[in-house]
Amino acid sequence: MKFPVLRVYTVLYLIFLYAPIALLPVFAFNSSKVIAFPLAGFSTRWFAEMLNDDLLFRAAKATLIIAVSSSILATCLGVLAARASTRFRFPGKGGVMGLIMLPMILPDIIVAMSLLVVLLAMGVNLSLLTVILGHVLICTPFSVAILTSAFQSLDNSLEEAAYDLGETPLSTFRLVILPLVMPGIVSSLLICFTISIDEYVIASFLGGNQTVLSVYIFGQFRFPAKVPAMLALGTILVALSIALLTIAEYFRRRGIAKTGAKDTGGFL
């Protein structure tokens, strides 16, 4: 029998991808401080320790504020840019759209450094707001990419039909365009939220004394005693991610079923 190379490769690849994540809950529920096999015994003490950590809660709250605001802001900007690029022709459109998409491939460190220099020179105090600005900058290209495809699949005559039936351009947008691109908007919000949550470089450069979750977790890894509690936190984050993606996929499929659009596989 021929050796199933591709099958073995696929299995190894998936193990490499997911085994480390699968180990998070294993050690989070392990009673020993040492991250090693054999396991000592079942315990929820690391979860309790984590929940008593006030700094952690402050960091989590900061992260949540940043992620929610930057995903909403980036998606709003994305809607405007995607609408402009799909519906209108204007001079220099190619160049403008290219420049909007550029931060997607620009190293975050460059964005972080240049923003830091400018903000400090302008005398702006580093705060949650400055992190939000940085995150909007790097999230917007993703939002534009997702929403452009959503707007492109819209038949122009739908808009004309609403206009023809007595609606103004503004109410047409609200009654026809917005509902039809809603799956794209939800995708954009989720992607931006995810990008913002685990972003490290910009958050640590522009955060000032406001520590966000990613920066806090990395900081805690310097203390071996704190590591199991961070694994407990990681376990909760994994659970939340799965829940979030499940909800998002549910809404996406419901949207597709409702409009009879072709299932293009979503962003997953």
Partner: peptide, 20 residues
């Protein structure tokens, strides 16, 4: 007079039925 205020209505080639 913009389209929304004209005494005309249109049947589009693609029908333009609102799918939602």
């Amino acid at each position: 007079v913009p389209p929304n205020l004209r005494p005309t209505n249109m049947v589009f080639q693609s029908y333009a039925i609102f799918p939602h």
